[in-house]
Amino acid sequence: MSSNHCQEMRLLLQADVDGELQAAEAARVAAHLDSCPDCSRLQQQLLALSATLRDTLPKHSAPEHLRQAVRARLRGAPGRQAAARRWPVGIASALVGIAASLALFAVLPMRGADGMQDWVVAAHVRALQPQHLLDVASTDRHTVKPWFAGRLSFSPPVRDLAADGFPLIGARLDSLPGSEAAVLVYRRREHVINLFIWPATAEGETAEGSRDGYNFVHWAADGMTFWAVSDLNAQELLEFAGRVR
């Protein structure tokens, strides 16, 4: 009895069990069930499975500390929200993924210092593509720092932050408008942090915010400009920046 017709019937039968059918289709299914014990049994199995799943699977409620953390974050959010709102809605909503970010990288013109956040976030996203993140993989700063020698005309400071919970995992070179950048790659749990460093003269300049769901922190010190970019939450990224400075 398990005919082709029955196989076609399965998705309809399932849709019927899921309450997705219009009356006419539901009647068709009912008529078939009357004459087909196999499909009838399948219907019983689907119903039983649904019931079992709903009865036995744990309902994971958000833990109270998560609820409180989210509440706190929502209260502290106006700065980020303003940052997001300043961009035209069309652009903001188009930036919903890696592909969109790469498109932005290609089309947005440079806008002086204002545009740099877009470039570093796009470079961060691009680096997350397979095989793009690291030119040298090492958790040892004594390996990473000499690696830059001969590849760059400047020597970026390389800190070992493993003790602070930000292990170094490697480094690479990246090109940003106007400069080659040294990129140190750190990690916090499963979050990758890209720290872009290149020579600059703007002492004391700082910025922080978020683009496309990625947070960034920017500062300048000792003749270098620094941009830290990550999908890590803003507080911990600030903590990271504090450790580097």
Binding site: A62, L66, L74, R80, V96, N233
Partner: peptide, 21 residues
């Protein structure tokens, strides 16, 4: 469970940015 909490927190942050849409 831990990663799930990170996902929710991150999603909330993204949500703030996308709420305009």
């Amino acid at each position: 469970p831990n990663l799930a909490e990170d996902v929710v927190q991150e999603a909330v942050l993204r949500g703030i940015n996308y709420f305009a849409s």
